[in-house]
């Protein structure tokens, strides 16, 4: 289907450069964010920026825009990954034996790492 459409190189090229500039700006944002804003939410903010970059790459570089079937398959697999994340992370976060399990050692519990493995 795509093989004999007539496309104009110069016109299309502009699109690629625009996306490039966008990605470069976002990359810069990545670097300044930890020192400039949302400092206490660096983890989430960084991933949001990443998601934005990923969206641009998917839509424009990978031409996902306008792909119906392929778009749905991508969406389906992403939803699955998100579901796995939600469940597994929820499980580890509501683990009942957090305070006694030796793999959940928090910094305030003074665990002697050097002996951790011998004590078992």
């Amino acid at each position: 289907m795509d093989t004999n459409t007539h496309i104009n190189y110069e016109e299309q090229k502009v699109g690629y450069y625009k996306v490039l500039v966008g990605l470069l700006l976002l990359t810069t944002l990545t670097f300044v964010q930890p020192h400039m804003f949302f400092e206490s939410y660096t983890f989430v903010t960084q991933l949001m920026i990443g998601a934005l970059k990923a969206w641009m790459i998917l839509m424009y570089y990978m031409h996902l825009k306008g792909e119906k079937l392929i778009g749905w398959t991508v969406a389906f697999s992403l939803v699955l990954v998100v579901f796995f994340f939600l469940v597994v992370i929820a499980d580890v976060n509501s683990f009942q034996f957090k305070d006694v399990s030796h793999i959940t050692s928090q910094p305030h519990i003074d665990v002697d790492y050097h002996h951790a493995s011998h004590e078992e």
């Binding site: 469940v87 929820a90 499980d91 509501s94 009942q96």
Partner: peptide, 21 residues
């Protein structure tokens, strides 16, 4: 079928919340 794998972990130390779900 993708959403039910946890029933294999009922006795493996999964949290009570996840077990119920």
């Amino acid at each position: 079928g993708y959403l039910v794998w946890g029933h294999h972990l009922f006795t493996s130390g999964m949290s009570d919340l996840a077990k119920t779900v």
